[in-house]
Amino acid sequence: MDENDKLNILKEILLTDEREYAYNISKKIEILEKTLNERKLLSQKVDPIVDGKIDSFVENIPKTLGPTITETLKQEIKNSKDQVVEALYPIMGKMIKKYIQQEINLLSDKINQQVENSFSAKSWKRRFTSWFTGVKEEDIIISELNKAEVLQVLIIDKNSGLLIGSYEKVATIDKDMISGMLTAIKHFIEDAFQNKDQSLELIEYELYNIHIQNFISYYIAVAISGNYTTEFKNKLQDIIFDFSQNYLKLFPDPSKIEEDVLVKELSHYFNDENI
């Protein structure tokens, strides 16, 4: 073995790892170039990253851009009131027109139904009322269609605001919450005027009225829909006083009355036949 052979053997021993390392690097570069040059392979690598960034951006929009967008819209609306009104006017006009037309159709159907029952005792009573009062029968029919109706009755402790008992024709939200809110509103208004001799008696809420009748330790709140007239108010007050005098006064502590018994009595006093 000559010197060249020995040198080659030495190179083989010393440079084997470096050649493998260089080969691996070359292979990785080749794969990377292939990935960059081929769209499908590149998409497989890049798309998940981009999708993740987009999802994160969308999720954080309300926090990052929400206040800015809201403030910008407010400012634009403030600066362009005429343009906003002009843009919304046709839409709102159509909505209002459609709503009015729908209500007219419903009213017409109800009037027709009343007219069809023209030979009923109620119809003859309406005609006699029209003859003697001079009020048109159509006006009487319309007033009957919008007749006030008791929807809910609440008996509430005056000081604590706790619900003693209730009666309702239509299920509503938490009655205990309603009683607490009514008491808070009642106390706030009465305290604001600083007159202990006066109490809140009526709350108007859109198409509804809440009649409040005050007693010493409790008050009775009645939710009403329809035409809340003075005549209806007087009749309602009479029923409330009768209920309090003839029933609640029998119990030193109304909160001790069983719920089922109280509901039965309320439904008896405040049914449609009595009002």
Rank of each mutant, 00 (worst) to 15 (best):
N271H: 10
E59I: 10
E149L: 09
G165W: 01
P62I: 03
F243R: 04
A221R: 05
V170C: 04
M95A: 10
K34R: 12
I240G: 01
Y208R: 00
E20V: 14
H268K: 13
M1R: 07
K94H: 07
V115C: 02
K256I: 02
F270I: 02
D109G: 14
T230Y: 07
T68K: 12
M177L: 15
V58Q: 13
A121I: 15
L15D: 06
E18Y: 14
K40M: 05
T64R: 10
I61Q: 14
L36H: 00
E20C: 12
L107Q: 00
D82L: 15
E190Q: 04
T64L: 03
K264M: 10
Q101P: 01
K97M: 11
G66L: 02
P67C: 05
I156D: 03
L151G: 03
L10W: 11
S26L: 11
I189A: 13
G93A: 04
A148L: 06
K74L: 12
E33M: 13
Y269C: 07
I111G: 05
G93K: 02
Q198V: 15
G180F: 01
I13S: 04
I275G: 09
A171C: 09
N105Q: 13
S267A: 12
L7N: 11
I164H: 01
F251Q: 07
I54C: 13
F232N: 00
E201I: 09
S160V: 09
E71K: 11
W124V: 15
N60K: 12
A192R: 08
I185T: 13
N271I: 07
S56M: 15
E138G: 10
L106M: 12
M95Q: 01
N8G: 00
I156E: 01
I69Y: 01
Y99H: 13
I100Q: 08
V261M: 14
G66I: 13
E204V: 15
K11R: 09
R127L: 04
I240F: 00
K249G: 01
S160G: 10
D82R: 15
H268M: 13
K63E: 12
I141W: 03
L73Y: 08
D238Y: 11
P252L: 05
T35N: 11
L262I: 02
T183V: 04
E38G: 05
Q194Y: 13
V115R: 02
Q83A: 15
K233Y: 08
V263K: 14
V84P: 06
E76V: 14
L207V: 10
S179V: 06
Q245L: 07
L106N: 07
L65D: 08
E149D: 08
S166C: 03
I141Q: 02
F215G: 03
E144F: 00
M1D: 11
Q237F: 08
N24F: 13
K6Q: 11
G161T: 05
F119H: 09
K233P: 06
I13F: 02
K78N: 09
T133M: 03
L200N: 03
M177F: 14
G52E: 12
L163T: 00
N79Q: 10
